[in-house]
Amino acid sequence: MSATLRVCALYPELMNIYADRGNIAVLRARCEWRGLGFELGASSLGEALDSCAHDLFYMGGGQDRDQAAVAKDMVATKRDALHRANERGAVVLGVCGGYQLLGHNYRAGDDEIPGVGLVDLHTVRGEGERLIGNCAIETDLGTGPRVIAGFENHGGRTYLGAGERPLGRVLSGHGNNGDDGFEGVLRGNVIGTYLHGPLLPKNVWLADRLIELALEVELRPLDDRMEEAAHASARRAAGV
């Protein structure tokens, strides 16, 4: 039986600042090359979300003004559906601004932007410089330690609650807040990270792992020589 990966891009026309469509393109190609189906849906401002209609929810980063509008809308129209989807095991991947909105809130001075609270974390706009640069982390998504390489560019500092697990340990770069040496968040099938670049073309092993988690299948390997060379290039840029 051939399965179909049903992806929902959240606010794709607003939350796409770091070439986020690269992540979608990689998911699509790697499903299709294996004979798996791929469906791409979207849900944007004012649109309800069907928690059962998708296996993987994706949200990227946006400009500040767009992100504030998205946050309010997401709490109003999508929070409950995302919680239900998460409970039945759907994968939720938030990158950069999309990662910040998975937590409780984002505070910048007196302004507070709400999050959907899928994970116990909060973000504050730091006093200092934006955290920018190539970044590499070590993570384990149930298949042993692996490296994720990417590029981070964020003014917010993210702090995880006591019981929350980071996605990985920073090998090179700033990570969640530039202080504690950790990056991202991982709880069940919810993953948040600051690494874009986009994320999945630089780390196709992660793309495959997400497909496996979303569909509960085991994937056959592909000819990944070019993908591995690109991953090595991104790691080299991060000095890892």
Partner: peptide, 13 residues
């Protein structure tokens, strides 16, 4: 260029 492999991958996809 310094990121040649990543450019090549972009073309593949």
């Amino acid at each position: 260029g310094t990121r040649a492999e990543e450019m090549a991958l972009r073309l593949k996809y």
